[in-house]
Amino acid sequence: MLPLVIMAIEDEDDKAFMTWLYLQYRRLIYSEVRKITGNTDEVEDLLQSVVEKLIEKLSLLRGMEQNKLVNYIISTAKNTAYNSLRGKDRGILWEEQEALADPAPTPEDQIIAQEDLYRLAHVWGNLDERTQYLLSAKYILKKSGKEIAGDLNVPPDNVRMALVRAKRTAREAMGQRVSFP
């Protein structure tokens, strides 16, 4: 059954696109939200919220390539679920939420991660020093955003975007989509 928010869209082209998008990716959205919340009762409500957020970005979604569209949908689902958890005072620390959301990797996930590491090692020397520092500080040295900001002498708010750019640079150097932890 389609969410009511889709049925409320007035433009028929937009409604058709969102209907297609929902039917195509509802299982993916459901899966991502359930991984984070762990509660099937909340998933349906959050599914509606994800759809609402996607509708707000309808014009952006229409122009995306499929791999970017899938990543955008996954990010929206995860962010919506995390925001829901943050909004509730459950007495669970953020680290515990992440532990609940990240089940043990499957053997296939481990193999893919290993292949990604080999590809990254192959292009590491081609990356600029700042990109190398950001990636190694965050993912190898496990430094916090504040520590990285102090090392780079930049405001802590700028570190997140610097990491996004560094990951993008590494992915482009590797020639394909790679997920960082």
Rank of each mutant, 00 (worst) to 15 (best):
R119T: 10
Q97L: 13
L152H: 02
S59W: 08
A149Q: 06
T169G: 00
D151L: 12
W20Q: 14
Q176C: 11
W94L: 11
S75I: 02
Q110G: 02
K88D: 10
L85Y: 14
I6M: 13
S49T: 07
N67H: 11
L21V: 12
W94C: 09
L46K: 05
E108G: 06
G63S: 10
L152D: 04
V70L: 02
V154I: 15
E115M: 05
G150K: 08
S179E: 12
N126K: 15
L152G: 02
N39W: 11
V51T: 12
Q114W: 06
V154Q: 12
L21T: 09
V43F: 01
Y72A: 05
L4I: 07
R86Q: 11
L4N: 15
D45Q: 11
I36F: 03
D11T: 12
A113F: 01
S31P: 03
A104S: 09
R168A: 05
A16I: 08
D89C: 13
E96V: 09
Y25K: 12
P107Y: 01
A173K: 08
S144L: 07
P156R: 13
W20T: 09
V178N: 00
T80C: 15
Q176A: 07
L23W: 09
A77S: 14
R27E: 14
Q66R: 15
P105H: 01
P156Y: 10
L69H: 01
A149C: 06
K142I: 04
L28S: 05
L134E: 01
R34C: 04
P103V: 11
D116Y: 05
E95Y: 12
R165V: 00
R27N: 11
S136D: 11
E65P: 02
S31K: 15
E42V: 10
Y118L: 13
I112H: 02
V5D: 07
Q176V: 03
K143Y: 08
T169A: 10
E56N: 10
T131L: 00
Q48H: 14
R171W: 00
A121R: 15
K78M: 06
V159R: 02
K167D: 00
E172P: 01
L93K: 12
R168P: 00
N83F: 07
I148R: 10
I36M: 03
